[in-house]
Write a protein that binds this DNA or RNA. Structure first.
Length: 873
RNA sequence: GGGAGUAUAGCUCAGCUGGUUCAGAGCAUCUGCCUUACAAGCAGAGGGUCCGGGGUUCGAAUCCCUGUGCUCCCACCA
């Protein structure tokens, strides 16, 4: 058993991960055991590991490792997401650096480069996860655009289309002029912005004067088709039906009336621009107004109106302000704060834009998804997210699933030359359908495939099914074995994008929930509570942290400060704590491994007691830890183990059984100690896989093919709660003696003697432990108080540490008086209850009894302290 | 504007069905210790108006109302 003196996580971690991999421990195939399955929330293929991933994946690994040790066939499936928008943006940026514009490439050329880029740089994050110790089944690594997943997406699209759930429609979409694609509502983030409110004059036709309209977007006047006032607005009632001229443009438009207009806002007059505002669009639809789209897809002005052609929307805004002022059509400009919608990916302001998109009807899909969570077929942890989920589903809108990008799953729709389209999984099928529709003479070359790709989430919503090929091969052995999966660990910000939609897909395609529990992590923030972001530079590089503290240390750090659903304030100091814990385990092992054993040696009483006690404690701890896991209180579970190892095992147990320097230990105690160590390592393994494996291998004197990660998790058992409670009296007694030692400045090596007036609360059976742990020469049973001693009371038992002339009478009296005052106050509060008729009659019997017990204890203590003070005086 | 959550030690948080494991844990702090596994440690100690104000109850950190602060989600008045 050779072990290094120093705990250096860096040295042990790499070797064990390779070992686990080489032994194939992470790989799962269906067998007779029950399955435990987690599918990873697929990180962006272009992503690199950040603290959010660390938290998320650490939790997954803890659950998977624990399940594996509990006898489940654990399967954690990793993979990456193609992430249409952000990946395409990165590839475009890369090409730009090389001096290549996307527009100069064909779709095929672009995709070739994108794939090349993905092969070269993609999936770094999966490599990084290995450093963390993630026990993913790498043989199953999937990609949302690999063969099986792509085929699944296409099949589902065709199926939903044939079911009548997918349709095309002109809709006002959130247009991202930078990415030149539509975004779903969920991909738009609103940001409070300092902008200006412009008051524009619309000259009244055939009369004098003008109407003033307040707008934040003067450039959209190019698309104005009406003004609108509230029908009840006395100021403008006479104007309804009159014509006014759009400033600069000169177009004649009518003044109409609608309740939608808020009389209080601005001037009470709204300009209606149906092409560029969602509300205006609705008014336009209602009154059948013309729609004038004034922008090109890239946000520059088109030639519809003939003004500002080719200029960017923001340049136009500046320019138009001057032009309006010059023309005397600008009443005034006010500072104004409003919310501007930004693209989550490109961060440019969203342009509401009318366009032809593909939609997925949500109503029928939403229904079972709602029920599953409402009726707790699927459990959310914490439960508060059920509200958010329900609210969203109740107000769900159809899902815009098309994106004007190249990187993604291309929509399998083909347009016929004479109009109309067909939807099919393959070109052959498309052609067949097209011929049915448009005549036998049609050739493939006559058909034009839709240019758009599907929203990324349209592939990830199938993830729990497509990972087991359940779409292309329904009912195959894998999907039957692994589905539904057990736990999903994810962040609450994708509850709509992803979680809700996976549930929908699960019921639609497997007629079964995709997972049993959803554990929502919090957002990782810095210690000042700020969100971690690149721009703030407050996000530590997880790999650097692992280099510095070891993966085990960082894992402990992540887990200690995280409770489900609460944001976590990450502080690097936590990593230090985690590393220190690893060090503690390491050193405890060094102590034990250094002991000499003499089999002939008789076991000492204190060792026998220690073993009984710790065995008992271990059983109770296991029960508590099981309960924590059942409630997904993972940080509580870890904290319990932390204290069990550090305080109870290292601080108490090992000190109790530790032989004198250089002396050997009896075989029974040594074996028991090794047994405890083994169990503790196993309990710790899911949290700290590396250091536990290293030490377990030393402990077990390694045999190839063995590993703690496939060993059995210790199981809870019956325990004696009374004995454990009684042992706490021992600890209190020892602490009291140590306290006296400290106050009197008595060195540890100097033994003390202890006198006790025995009563029921004196744990006499544990006396050998008290003697050893407090450094006593012995314990003497007495019936009289010792005035020349430092005294203390544990529960009701009076103890005396004889001090000879070291006793400081003044200080002793002061201490006792303080305690007396406290106890008298305490007794008074107890008596207040007991003297209250309504308490005696109203409270449960048990509560009343404990109050009487309190009273008796307090009275006994008070009497003892009074006597003692008298004796000292 | 609508909804939800949260407020407990310097920090991060537990505290489940109101009542002796009710005021807790870890970290940090302070005081002793180079005690023969560990100073990344050991021993001990201090630290709280349970956000403010009402109410229910024999009894409230816990339940109700109200105010305040913070966080998040949804909506987006030009």
């Amino acid at each position: 058993m050779n072990i290094q003196d120093k705990y250096t996580p860096q040295e042990i971690e790499s070797k064990w991960y390779e070992y686990w991999l080489s032994q194939g421990y992470f790989h799962s195939v269906p067998d007779g055991r029950p399955a435990y399955t987690i599918v990873i929330p697929p990180p962006n293929v272009t992503g690199i590991l950040h603290m959010g991933h660390m938290l998320n994946n650490t939790i997954q690994d803890v659950l998977v490792r624990r399940a594996r040790m509990k006898g489940f066939n654990a399967c954690w499936v990793p993979g990456t997401d193609h992430a249409s928008i952000s990946t395409e943006a990165k590839v475009v940026a890369m090409l730009k650096e090389q001096g290549i514009e996307k527009s100069s490439l064909t779709r095929e050329e672009f995709l070739a480069r994108a794939w090349e880029w993905k092969e070269k740089y993609g999936g770094i994050i999966l490599k990084q996860l290995r450093r963390l110790g993630a026990s993913c089944d790498w043989e199953r690594t999937a990609f949302t655009m690999d063969e099986v997943r792509s085929a699944s997406v296409i099949r589902v699209f065709v199926d939903l289309y044939n079911k009548g759930l997918i349709y095309r429609g002109v809709r006002m979409v959130n247009w991202d002029p930078a990415a030149q694609t539509a975004l779903s509502d969920e991909e738009v983030v609103f940001c409070e912005t300092q902008s200006k409110l412009y008051y524009l004059r619309y000259m009244i036709e055939g009369g004098d004067g003008y109407m003033v309209v307040a707008t934040t977007r003067p450039e959209t006047i190019l698309g104005d088709v009406a003004l609108c006032v509230n029908p009840n607005d006395q100021r403008y009632k006479h104007m309804i039906g009159h014509a006014v001229r759009v400033p600069l443009v000169g177009r004649s438009i009518l003044v109409i009336a609608d309740d939608y207009v808020d009389m209080e806002f601005g001037t009470g007059v709204l300009k209606v621009t149906p092409a560029h505002d969602i509300n205006d669009y609705m008014i336009g639809e209602k009154y059948n107004l013309e729609v004038i789209d004034i922008f090109n897809p890239d946000g520059t002005v088109n030639d519809k109106v003939g003004l500002y052609v080719g200029m960017d929307r923001f340049t136009v805004r500046e320019k138009i302000e001057g032009d309006l002022r010059e023309a005397g059509l600008l009443e005034k400009v006010e500072a104004y704060t409003n919310n501007v919608g930004l693209s989550e990916r490109t961060h440019v302001p969203i342009e509401p834009k009318l366009s032809m998109q593909w939609f997925l009807r949500m109503d029928t899909l939403a229904k079972p998804a709602m029920e599953a969570v409402e009726e707790e077929m699927i459990r959310f942890v914490p439960a508060k997210f059920r509200n958010t989920y329900r609210h969203w589903l109740e107000n769900i809108k159809d899902w815009c699933i098309s994106r004007q990008l190249w990187w993604g799953h291309r929509i399998p729709a083909w347009y016929l030359p004479e109009g109309g389209f067909v939807v099919a999984e393959t070109e052959e099928e498309a052609l067949r359908l097209a011929r049915e529709k448009g005549g036998e003479t049609l050739q493939m070359s006559d058909l034009r495939r839709d240019d758009d790709v599907l929203d990324t989430w349209f592939s990830s919503w199938l993830w729990p099914i497509s990972l087991f090929d359940g779409i292309m091969h329904p009912g195959n052995p894998e999907i039957r074995y692994y589905y539904p999966t057990d736990d999903l660990i994810t962040a609450p910000d994708i509850i709509f994008f992803w979680v809700a939609r996976m549930i929908m897909a699960g019921y639609e395609y497997e007629h079964e929930k995709p997972f049993g529990n959803v554990y929502f992590t919090g957002i990782v923030r810095d210690k000042l509570g700020r969100k971690m972001s690149k721009s703030l530079g407050n996000s530590p590089d997880p790999i650097e942290l692992i280099d510095k503290y070891g993966a085990d240390g960082v894992r402990v750090a992540m887990l200690l400060c995280s409770t489900a659903g609460n944001d976590i304030m990450f502080d690097e100091a936590m990593c230090e704590q985690g590393r220190n814990f690893g060090n503690k385990i390491w050193n405890a092992f060094r102590l034990v491994s250094g002991w000499q054993v003499d089999e002939r040696l008789q076991q000492s009483d204190h060792s026998r007691i220690a073993i009984e006690w710790f065995d008992n404690l271990l059983r109770r701890s296991l029960e508590e830890i099981d309960a924590d896991f059942a409630a997904y209180r993972i940080s509580d579970a870890l904290m319990k183990i932390y204290r069990l190892f550090w305080d109870e095992f290292s601080g108490w147990y090992l000190e109790m059984v530790k032989p004198a320097y250089g002396a050997p230990m009896d075989g029974t105690t040594f074996a028991a100690t090794k047994g405890f160590f083994d169990k503790l390592l196993r309990i710790l393994h899911p949290f700290m896989p590396f250091v536990t494996e290293e030490l377990w291998q030393h402990l077990a004197e390694r045999i190839d093919g063995q590993s703690i990660m496939i060993s059995d998790m210790p199981v809870a058992g019956e325990y004696d709660a009374a004995a454990l409670a009684r042992f706490e009296l021992v600890k209190e007694t020892v602490a009291a003696i140590r306290n006296i030692r400290q106050q009197k400045g008595i060195p540890n090596r100097e033994t003390l003697s202890l006198k006790v007036i025995r009563d029921d609360n004196y744990p006499e059976e544990y006396a050998p432990v008290i003697i050893k742990m407090a450094g006593l020469s012995g314990i003497e049973h007495v019936t009289e108080k010792d005035p020349a001693a430092s005294a203390f009371i544990v529960k009701t038992t009076q103890y005396f540490v004889p001090m000879g002339d070291m006793i400081d009478v003044e200080a002793e009296i002061k201490k006792l008086s303080d305690e007396l005052a406290y106890l008298e106050g305490f007794l008074a509060s107890v008596m207040k209850k007991l003297n209250n008729e309504r308490f005696i009659s109203g409270a449960p019997q048990k509560v009343v009894e404990t109050e009487y017990a309190k009273k008796n204890d307090a009275e006994a203590k008070i009497a003892a302290i009074r006597e003692r003070i008298a004796a000292l005086k």
